[in-house]
């Protein structure tokens, strides 16, 4: 199996399959073990750090639970690429430092293709097919936050700065 491979899911992947309610009491390790299990038994066991999750329309619809994004990050998913995202999931992913990219051509990516993603440039290279796909680049202020590791490290920087300026 190549590294940085693509896991393909369809439209309307919801937060209940990403982070099932019956495991919400536990920690993120337990929740991540059950991530997507009701539609794909293999994913949580076999996904490797650096892999990409490719979804269709309205990825992450449903609840505001950010464990849906956190579980993917915990499993080492490098980015979620989808045709479109549900608003709350999109904000949660970026806030947690998980890259979320909107790409109209996700249908061209096949399961297990090896990908190379450049979020700043808005470019995905499918190394298996040799194709280059465009995606919407992240706005600069969001990219800065994701690169800082998410909202919390970003706020840490802000509060440290304001303390130093005092």
């Amino acid at each position: 199996m190549p590294n940085n491979r693509a896991w393909i899911f369809g439209d309307n992947i919801d937060t209940d399959v990403l982070a099932p309610g019956r495991y919400m009491k536990g920690g993120i390790e337990e929740l991540a073990r059950h991530c997507l299990e009701s539609i794909d038994q293999r994913f949580a066991n076999e996904v490797a750090p650096g892999d990409y999750l490719v979804g269709g329309r309205n990825f992450g619809m449903g609840s505001s639970r950010e464990q849906a994004a956190q579980a993917l990050k915990h499993l080492g998913v490098a980015a979620v690429i989808a045709r479109s995202f549900a608003g709350i999931f999109y904000r949660n992913a970026l806030n947690l430092g998980l890259v979320a990219l909107v790409c109209r051509d996700v249908g061209r990516i096949r399961a297990n293709d090896a990908l190379e993603v450049n979020a700043a440039a808005g470019r995905i290279v499918d190394k298996t097919t040799g194709e280059t796909l465009r995606c919407e680049p992240l706005p600069a202020h969001l990219l800065a936050m994701v690169q800082a590791g998410g909202l919390v490290p970003h706020l840490e920087q802000r509060f440290i700065r304001s303390m130093e300026n005092r």
Binding site: S64, E66, N95, L151
Partner: peptide, 12 residues
């Protein structure tokens, strides 16, 4: 609605 990290940002 927002997630918990974003809520923490609001609370801060």
């Amino acid at each position: 609605g927002v997630g918990a990290t974003e809520m923490a940002g609001v609370l801060a």
